[in-house]
């Protein structure tokens, strides 16, 4: 299970590719970890863990997609499968450097902008709340958030290219 703890970030990013929101991702991963435990005897070696775990996670995600589709528009199953294949190539090291790149990039924003960038992950309705606090419409704030995320992405691209990823 040390393998699971070790690869958990990769599996989470993998699940996130397929699923629209974090609550669904968390549920799917939790179910996947239980399945993995039950079927741990199938696993022959530690090196085979990640591919095997991804299959389990993919299976759990696909079964969650149908329900998720009802709450918001999603890409087609075929496209999600393709994206999952793309995400398959994502390695732990890559994730670590992406993570360090964005915490570096995040540091370039002022505190208010940082808060806005993180708002969609903190509390539901946090963006609306921030909008209320600064007297702007939520729509305007989402637009600003979009621009900030673009800037963040630019900064990250710059950094990751330097690192040759």
């Amino acid at each position: 299970m040390r393998q699971f703890v070790r690869h958990e970030p990769v599996l989470r990013a993998y699940a996130r590719t397929l699923l629209p929101d974090w609550n669904v991702v968390d549920d799917a991963l939790q179910e996947a970890s239980v399945t993995m435990w039950e079927k741990r005897s199938d696993l022959e070696s530690a090196s085979g863990f990640l591919p095997w775990a991804k299959v389990v996670v993919r299976f759990k995600c696909l079964s969650a997609i149908a329900a998720a589709r009802r709450s918001r528009p999603l890409l087609t199953d075929e496209m999600l499968q393709q994206l999952a294949d793309e995400a398959d190539a994502l390695q732990l090291e890559e994730l670590a450097s992406i993570r360090s790149a964005h915490s570096k990039c995040l540091g370039k924003f002022n505190a208010a902008h940082q808060e806005l960038i993180l708002a969609p992950y903190s509390e539901s309705g946090r963006v609306q709340q921030l909008a209320g606090q600064c007297g702007k419409s939520a729509h305007a704030l989402y637009k600003l958030l979009g621009r900030l995320r673009d800037k963040l992405a630019d900064c990250m691209r710059g950094l990751l290219q330097v690192e040759g990823l």
């Binding site: 970030p9 989470r12 590719t17 964005h102 992405a153």
Partner: peptide
């Protein structure tokens, strides 16, 4: 898209 997801994971 995959990189954006990784970013999303990190931000979260």
């Amino acid at each position: 898209f995959v990189t954006a997801v990784a970013t999303d994971t990190g931000l979260r």
